[in-house]
Amino acid sequence: MIQLTNVVKRYPIRGGQATILDHINLQIASGEKVGILGRNGAGKSTLIRLISGAERPTSGTIIRDMSVSWPLAFGGAFQGSLTGLDNLRFICRIYGTSTEDKIPFVQEFSELGKYLSEPVKTYSSGMRARLAFAISMVVEFDCFLIDEIIAVGDARFHEKCQYELFEKRKDRAMIVVSHDPGFIREHCQHASVLVKGKLTSFNDMDEAFAYYNAHSMEIA
């Protein structure tokens, strides 16, 4: 289970502080799939980073009783000067899993061929997303945090990702962040909507979408 209680996140900005997340409460049971809807800049990625533990909340508590992935997103989680393979080795080392047996899968899945031995900073955004997704399937977690990563790549890659994540790992919990209601409806059981730093949870998808649409014009 993951439990967020009264989580607040503020960032210092010129002339004061910006409250990005304002007393967020959220609970995710094992195997549960929750979508978080919010427009650009609503604080979705911040929320995901807090849940992952990469960042700390200004106040409030976050309890993680299951293993939680890092935020699977396009950017981040990789060191640009390292090659794709060295990034894979780094991640295997820090999560304490063996490396060499994972290389064939990453090679095949990412379709990067000889570019796996080139620095990640030379990759295109599509190549980066393929590498990111392939590496994130190498370490197993009870809960995956998915920050829009699936939305990238061509249709075939899209399909492969769907299969790896939503078919093979359908027993896991997932928190999916998106501004695309269709994607959330397809993969999640419940949805929460982030507006102006407040998170409102809905058991019913249609209610969540109605709320999202009604508030989608409001500035975060």
């Binding site: 533990g53 990469a54 989680a77 990789f78 000067s81 820090i94």
Partner: peptide, 12 residues
């Protein structure tokens, strides 16, 4: 700074 992207992993 050069390691910021690696800090996506909470163990780092």
């Amino acid at each position: 700074e050069p390691n910021l992207s690696l800090m996506y992993h909470r163990h780092v």
